[in-house]
Design a protein around this nucleic acid. Structure first.
Ligand SMILES: NC(=O)c1ccc[n+]([C@@H]2O[C@H](COP(=O)([O-])OP(=O)(O)OC[C@H]3O[C@@H](n4cnc5c(N)ncnc54)[C@H](O)[C@@H]3O)[C@@H](O)[C@H]2O)c1
Ligand SMILES: NC(=O)c1ccc[n+]([C@@H]2O[C@H](COP(=O)([O-])OP(=O)(O)OC[C@H]3O[C@@H](n4cnc5c(N)ncnc54)[C@H](O)[C@@H]3O)[C@@H](O)[C@H]2O)c1
Lengths: 252, 252
DNA sequence: CGCGATTTGTGCACGCCTTCACAAGCGCCT
DNA sequence: AGGCGCTTGTGAAGGCGTGCACAAATCGCG
């Protein structure tokens, strides 16, 4: 389970195993997905003075159930003190360690169109341990452009640069039709994590992780809920949208 | 997994519109989240000729298991033909209807900085039934700017315009510190669905749906997997403790 | 008209996740 | 020192989602 680091090492500390690796327990995916949220909440709290925080308080700040939060944290070891709460600084360190944020990760961004420019200028990367070290595009007109201190390079250089800079994470912000090709190039270059903004499914080897961010999907999910809410409306005291009443009538 | 949905003050129900209709069965959230993906795959297929598609084929195109796909579709009724497959056109119509995409939904975007500009110029909205009908910012320097045929308005106009244009969905692309205030304004204006790009938790009434897109979280999740993968390949003599001095060494 | 090939729709079992509820642990106060 | 209140950590239960495996349905063809 949680690797040892935390004085509790029971009895023997076997001569350091070379490569004393983390060897993580299988943290539930659901937990992993929430850790970053806890981390952000902790950082906010840290700025606000308090030294310790209760599961109840942190849960509220992160928008989750406190029992869930405690269980999540228990997966990474016991870093709280009963009757008191969690030490903010210690917990931050611990979560950052588990997420691997203590090592700065090199990221490259492919596709410097509309979205790519916004991403390149986003300071949320650096502030969380990520550093964009290279920008790539296939459009000759874009190659050479300076963005945030980086020069846009041609995608053919990706293979070489990725190795040089030890890039592990690639961000795809190209049109969907180019995304698979870009993913292939990234994979060939040794990139093992991809964040894909293009609305399409990527095929990659099993050892490569892909996460997708799709704006349209989010909107469609919201649309569904709008649809559902509209269909439930029975008797409201609402009086704010006199406008176009409701079109919806359908009827299959 | 649904996003947050917290209640703070059910208080009054603002923009409730009277409507009679569908009264959906409770579609599982997981299914709803996949429908947009199926829809996109179907559109691609539709362009490519075929009239019908098997669950196996569609599942592959959407990147899911075929049994899951069939179960998902079965939730919305039976629109396939055994021994044949699903009629592409019919299925598209059906999914669009369920998602409420047959009605053009008015969307407003708040915060026209880096990201906001990219979103405003994104054609993936219109092509999926959403229409950005208004842009808002608090910065006087931005108000009046023309973007994609729309004029940026001051956020104080949001309340009025939202009602006029019958806006149901609001997109927040402001800095995190302003997000809650913007969300409050949107809610007051009768908006019942919010897509939040700011890295923070929003408090909204129970009848308002919020979905969050957080780039940093995605990267951190990828980082975790990188960390995990690195720890499996036995070599790096990584020191396993977080650098910072842990004065707190709890334990004994 | 019946048969085989094909593909849907789903019952079922399993595993993951969430949530409750509470014992155990900790600090503080008397 | 002992008791009390507070908070963590976790066992257990229930719900949800996934994927298998198969019966039912449909088509095409001889
Ligand atoms: N703009 C948005 O707000 C937004 C939002 C969500 C998703 N997206 C998606 O993000 C992607 C990019 O959107 P955009 O608006 O920036 O598009 P864009 O057309 O403005 O930019 C695409 C960029 O990718 C480059 N490109 C094309 N093929 C390439 C290749 N093979 N290798 C490298 N670079 C290549 C182009 O030269 C261009 O610079 C699209 O898939 C879009 O659907 C965009
Ligand atoms: N840029 C990105 O790629 C990116 C990626 C992911 C998330 N984000 C998040 O999206 C948000 C916006 O990012 P950005 O890079 O565009 O920031 P930005 O600073 O460039 O733009 C923010 C805009 O919001 C406006 N604004 C501020 N307060 C406002 C208020 N009360 N009402 C209305 N408008 C207000 C500002 O005038 C500005 O135009 C941030 O929360 C950021 O963390 C950005």
């Amino acid at each position: 389970m949680s690797q040892q680091r935390h004085g509790v090492t029971p009895g023997n500390a076997p001569g350091d195993r070379a490569g004393a690796v983390p060897a993580f327990p299988d943290l539930p995916e659901a937990t992993i997905a929430r850790l970053p949220e806890y981390l952000r909440a902790l950082h906010n709290l840290g700025d606000s003075g308090s030294d310790t925080i209760s599961s109840e308080g942190l849960a509220a700040a992160a928008g989750v159930n406190s029992a869930k939060l405690r269980k999540d944290l228990s997966h990474l070891g016991s870093y709280g003190t009963r009757g008191v709460g969690y030490d903010v600084t210690l917990l931050i360190e611990q979560i950052e360690y588990v997420l691997g944020l203590d090592q700065r990760r090199a990221v490259c961004l492919v596709g410097l169109g509309n979205l790519g420019h916004a991403l390149a200028g986003y300071d949320g990367f650096a502030s969380r341990g990520f550093k964009i070290v290279a920008l790539f595009d296939a459009d000759e007109a874009k190659v050479g452009e300076q963005i945030q201190g980086l020069t846009v390079r041609h995608i053919e250089e990706l293979g070489r640069v990725a190795v040089e800079e030890n890039i592990a994470i690639g961000v795809i912000a190209t049109p969907a039709r180019a995304a698979q090709a870009v993913a292939d190039v990234l994979v060939d270059a040794g990139v093992t994590s991809i964040l894909n903004f293009a609305p399409c499914v990527l095929s990659v080897p099993a050892n490569v992780d892909v996460r997708k961010v799709d704006l349209a999907i989010e909107l469609q999910i919201l649309s569904f809920h709008e649809h559902r809410k509209a269909s439930l409306t029975a008797l409201p005291g609402g009086r704010s949208a006199p406008a176009a009443g409701n079109q919806e009538a359908v009827g299959s």
